[in-house]
Design a binder for these strands. Structure first.
Length: 395
RNA sequence: GGGCAGGUGGUAGAGCGGUCAAUUACACCUGACUGUAAAUCAGGCGCCUUUCGGCUACAUAGGUUCGAAUCCUAUCCUGCCCA
């Protein structure tokens, strides 16, 4: 059985549906990975995620290494058992922290030296160390440690970063093979994926993609995007990398994005996505809603259809205008919040600091994202992806 | 009736002669958020004005002073203590 089965290709774009087979089950693509950085999708249970149709979640090497420590997770029998999630797990390598914790780290050939925020001690995360930690966590998809500078993109620095990422990749692969052959890994079926860097420079993206393909990875992630660059720059970066990756391999777009970004990137050929947007913004009161749910100019909303292509918008539930709005957040949504509560109530929960506010809002946004992916899969399957894509605009 | 301490912007509570339209917190309003140092962060929050600036304000009424939320007098009100 191939690692990745392509089920249907969209005739009008590079979009496709497929299935990734992992040691903990299948992933229907295009897929969205809810983010559970520290071994928990904030305020949400594993059972709920599974019930809503999340096939896979993402956790973070850097954070779990720091606390509770990968040795403890190993003792617990791996992250799946530790957190009670039976499905596939994707672990980020800590590469993103190379970028996001810029003020407290130093990039060196051997790896990245971090000063932990918890206790101030310094530790070096090397490509080997990252692989070791991910092996102890027992994720189904592990990533190589990568390096990337932030935005604005600079050619020379980006060139250095793809070269460093390549050298690190080689070391990561060697370590991964060593663990598989010599060790007693928590998850013998774990796959190591490569990461393509290169900012929005065509030649660097091409070079980085070819570097990674040459290593023989079975899956690839595109990194270094959504770091503050304009949307078009991001799409260019993706479009420069994808043609150089094997069509038969799954491609993940790291850290992306808005519904608009996801629809666009799917059209370019990306299969999986992860992003903090639905969960973080939920905690801040920003909710994603289908466009048909918002009052039309005539003042009437229309209930969403199963195969709708309606697009989306957002609301800030904290806004005063929702104080006495006794209608659901999204008429077309089937989440617990929308089926049971009003905007007025949710706003009240936020205003009073009730923990339930965060939970309900997170439930809603995750359901929105997971529903979006289901709509995308359906649209590709039934040949109306192109039409659907035109309705998803930047907001 | 006497003594003491007070009355400051939605609330609490700083300020105690000029740099005060008034620190700070909370509340309130708005915005940001893309491989999570994020249940976080930023801005606004007397009135008019795009800015500059102007106006009205620190219980009330007078007064001292070049200048008062800040000092003095009276009045009203609040809390505590003694009768």
């Amino acid at each position: 059985m191939p690692y990745f089965d392509i089920l249907k290709k969209d005739p009008g774009s590079q979009a496709r549906t497929g299935t990734i087979h992992t040691a903990h089950g299948d992933i229907q693509t295009p897929a969205f990975l809810p983010i559970g950085t520290k071994g928990a999708v904030k305020s949400i249970t594993s059972e709920e995620l599974k019930f809503w149709g999340a096939d896979i979640i993402l956790a973070n090497t850097y954070h779990l290494w720091q606390r509770p420590g990968d040795a403890l997770v190993y003792k617990a029998g791996g992250l799946h058992k530790f957190m009670g999630w039976q499905g596939p797990i994707f672990t980020d390598s800590g590469g993103f922290q190379v970028f996001s914790l810029a003020k407290m780290r130093k990039v060196m050939e051997v790896g990245v030296m971090f000063q932990f925020d918890m206790d101030g001690r310094s530790e070096i995360l090397s490509p080997e160390k990252s692989v070791d930690i991910q092996a102890n966590l027992g994720s189904d998809i592990a990533l190589i440690l990568d390096d990337f500078p932030g935005y604005p993109f600079e050619y020379e620095r980006s060139k250095e970063s793809i070269a460093l990422t390549k050298r690190w990749a080689e070391r990561a692969i060697r370590e991964h093979q060593k663990i598989v052959i010599d060790g007693d890994p928590v998850n013998p079926g774990q796959k190591l994926w490569g990461i393509v860097q290169g900012a929005s420079f065509p030649d660097l993206r091409e070079q980085s993609a070819k570097d990674m393909v040459a290593f023989g990875f079975e899956g690839f992630a595109i990194g270094g995007v959504a770091v503050g660059e304009p949307h078009e720059e991001m799409m260019k970066a993706v479009s420069y990398a994808l043609p150089h990756l094997p069509e038969t391999a799954p491609r993940h777009l790291l850290g992306v994005g808005t519904p608009f970004d996801i629809v666009r990137a799917t059209g370019l050929g990306c299969d999986t996505f992860d992003c903090v947007i639905p969960t973080r913004e939920a905690r801040h009161g920003r909710l994603y809603i289908s466009a048909v749910s918002s009052p039309s100019p005539s003042g009437r909303g229309v209930r969403g259809e199963g195969n709708t292509t309606e697009g989306y918008s957002t609301i800030n539930i904290n806004n005063e205008k929702f104080k006495e709005d006794f209608t659901p957040v999204d008429n077309g949504c089937d989440c617990y919040l929308c089926l049971n509560h009003t905007k007025s109530y949710l706003r009240h929960l936020f205003a009073t600091g009730e923990p339930l506010a965060i939970r309900l809002a997170t439930m809603h946004n995750l359901k929105f994202y997971l529903n979006l992916m289901a709509k995308i899969r359906k649209a590709i399957t039934y040949d109306y992806f192109g039409e659907m894509a035109t309705n998803y605009k930047e907001i």
